[in-house]
Nucleic acid binder design. Sequence first.
DNA 1: AGGCTTTAGTCAGGAGTCCTCACCAAGCGG
DNA 2: CCGCTTGGTGAGGACTCCTGACTAAAGCCT
Lengths: 376, 376
Amino acid sequence: MSVDLPSLDLLRSLSDRHVLAAVASSPGVTRAAVAATTGLSKPTVSQSVARLLDTGVLAEGERTTGGRGRAGTTLTVDAAAGCALAVQAGPGGVVGELVALDGRILATRRRAVSVPVTSRALGRALVEVCRALASDSPGPVRVVTVSVADPVDRRTGRVVELPESPFLVGELDVVDLLEGVVPVRPVVDNDVSWALLAEQARGVAAGVDDVLQLYLDDGMGAAILTGGRLLHGSRGLAGEIAYAQAHAPARGSRRAVSDTLIGCVEALGYLQPRGRAVDTTRLVADLDADRPTALAVAEAVAGVARAHAYLLDPELVVLSGGWGRHTRIVDAVTTTLGDAGGVTATVAPAEVTDDAPLVGARATAVDALLDTWLVA
Amino acid sequence: MSVDLPSLDLLRSLSDRHVLAAVASSPGVTRAAVAATTGLSKPTVSQSVARLLDTGVLAEGERTTGGRGRAGTTLTVDAAAGCALAVQAGPGGVVGELVALDGRILATRRRAVSVPVTSRALGRALVEVCRALASDSPGPVRVVTVSVADPVDRRTGRVVELPESPFLVGELDVVDLLEGVVPVRPVVDNDVSWALLAEQARGVAAGVDDVLQLYLDDGMGAAILTGGRLLHGSRGLAGEIAYAQAHAPARGSRRAVSDTLIGCVEALGYLQPRGRAVDTTRLVADLDADRPTALAVAEAVAGVARAHAYLLDPELVVLSGGWGRHTRIVDAVTTTLGDAGGVTATVAPAEVTDDAPLVGARATAVDALLDTWLVA
DNA sequence: AGGCTTTAGTCAGGAGTCCTCACCAAGCGG
DNA sequence: CCGCTTGGTGAGGACTCCTGACTAAAGCCT
C-alpha cells in the first residue's frame, strides 16, 4: 500500500539511484564502501540495498577476505534483472552489444550487409542482430539504443529522406521493425550524435560542455553539445551540414564555387558516381598528395566550421570520420578558426575511432537502464 | 539549529518554491487556493507559508469578503524583501525597470545617449539608471539582469570586440561598472537572447522548445532555443551570424557575391558609412520599393536561415528586428525553407516588438529572484 | 435573529525518509 | 587469547509530507 507521496518517492529513488550507480560503477563493493563514496549514512545505504535486493537489481556475493577488519558482503549488479541493447547500423553493416547495468558487455553480434546497402537488407540485419542478442540476455531487455548512419527522426524512429541522402535508399522505420523483436521502444538517433557522446564519455571532449563535432566520411554530419546536453532539434534531425553554404575554388576553372558544402564536394569531383556519398578513399589519397582540389574541400569545410563556430561559440571543435581526421582538414580548420577574430575554440581530431557511435549508444543505454529502476 | 540534511532541505525548498511561485503568479491568493493550485495539502502550505512569512518574502493582507464561506487571509509578495533590476542598453540609450517578485514593475527609468554612442557614455547612463532604480527600491536589490546590444561574454560581463562590431566603440565591462552600484553580480547577455526569451514568454514562441530567432536591425544576430533552454555557448557569445557564409547577386554586376552575410550587405550597399552597422531605414525603404539590391539581401538572409535550419532543426524560425520583420524578408525565408527538403520549420515575424530584450530580461530577473529564496 | 451551509485554517496522528549514536559480528595481528 | 579494525544493524530523534477531524468565520435562508 504505497501511498502517493511523489516528493518522498523522489527522495527515496534519489538515494536508490546513488547506491545503484555506486555499485554499478565499481562492482564488488560493500555497503560501507557505498556509504563512503555516496556520502549517505550506513543505515540509509543498508535500507536502500535491502530495497534493491528485493527488486532483484542487486545481488549479494561472497565475503571479501582482503583487508584488516571484518570481511564485508560484496554487492554486484544482477544482469538477470535486466539488460540493454546498443546497436549500430551503418554502411558497414550492423553491430550490436548486450550490456549489463554496470557496463559489462555480455555479448556482441556483427552482421555485414552487401553493397549497395538497401534499407530492406539493413532492416533485416538489424532485426537479426537484436533477436540474437535478446535471446542471449540472462534477463529481460529493458532498454534499446540504436545508431543509424542517416538522418533520423528520433520521435518516430524513422529515417528521414533528405534531398540528398548519403547512403541509404528506401525507407527504414526502426521502431516498427523492432516492434515484436524487443519488448521496449528503441531510442534511435543518428551516428554523429552518438559519436559525440562517445567522445564526451572517453575521448577528447571529456569534461567539455560546449562542443561542435563534424563527422566527415561517406556522409557528412555534425553534432552539437551545448551546456553538457546534446542538441537534438525539434525532430532530432539537427546536425545536417551538407546544405551549409560554402565556398571553394572549382576544379579547372578560375571562378569560385559557391554552393552548399555537398555542392562544393561534387563540383570538386569527390562524390561517388552513384548516390550522394563522398568518395572517401580518393579524397584521402588526394589530401595525402596535397592536390589543390582536395585542399579546396578542406577550405570549404573550414569555412563551414568557422560559420558554425561563430553561431554556436563552442569550446572545442572535434573533427571525426574517415577524412575529417586527416591532418590537412584539421590544419585548415585550425588555421581558419585561428584567423577568425573572436573565436577561441580549440580544434582536435576525434580520439574514439572504432565504432564510436556504438560506444556512445552503449553509454546512454547504461544510463537509461539505470533510470528504469527508479521509476518502478 | 537546522541540521545538515541536504535532501530534506531540498524537499522543503521544493515546497516553498511552489508556494512562492503560486503567490507570485497570482497575488492575493489564500492558503487554501495555493493548496488547490499546487496540489500540496493545506497543512503543508500553511507550514510553508509560515516559513516564508518568517523570512519576510510573503506578507499577509486583509481578508477577502467576496465568496460564500469564511474569508481567507490573502497572501502577497512583499517587495521590501527584495527586488530585481532589468536593464537594457543599446544604441537608443538605456532603459531599466525595478521589478518585484510577482512581476510588478515598480519603477522605470530611461536615459538617452547621444550618437555616436561611445562605450563611455553608455556606461555612464547604465550606472545612473541602475543607481536611480536601486534608490527607488523598497528593499535590497537581489538580482540584476542586463541586456547589451553587442556580443558579450556572459561569464565576465565584458563586451567582446568582434572584428566588425555593429555599433559600439571602445570596451565596456558591465560587471566592473556596476561593482559598487549594485550589491550583486549582474547577469549580462546580448539583446537577441533576451528577445528570444521574451518571445517565448509572451510571443509567438510560447510553448515551443526549439526556436531559431534572427534579429536583423542595425546589428545582426541570432538566438537559439533548444529543448526549452537558451543556447549560450562556452562564453555566451553564441548567435553570431554576421560571419555566416552567404550568397547574393552584387549591385551593378552580374557576378554573384559570395561572402559573409555582413559582406553581402556591404557589397549591396546597405552598410552605414561609419561603423559596421546596417542602414536600416534605407534598407526598409528599398524593401518597400522592391528594389533588386534589397531583395538580394533578403535572399542572402534566407540562405543563412536555411543553412541554420538544417543545422539546428528548429520547430519555429522567428524573424525580428527593424528590417527582419519586413514582409519581403519573411516571405523570402518562408519560401526558401519551404523549398528545402526535410525542413519543416514554420516561419513567423516576432510579436514582442517594444523593448523585447527588456521583457526577456524582466522575466529572467523574476525567475532568478525567486531562486534567491530557496538557497538561503 | 438564529441556524445551516460553505470555506479557511489549524491540530493531531500516521507514514516515510534521513541522520547520529551505539551495539554486535567477524576478521587480523600481536 | 586479547585488542584493534572494519562491516552491518538497531534504536531513537528530527524532519517532511499526508489524511482526517476540528475550530473559525462569513454568507444565505427561514
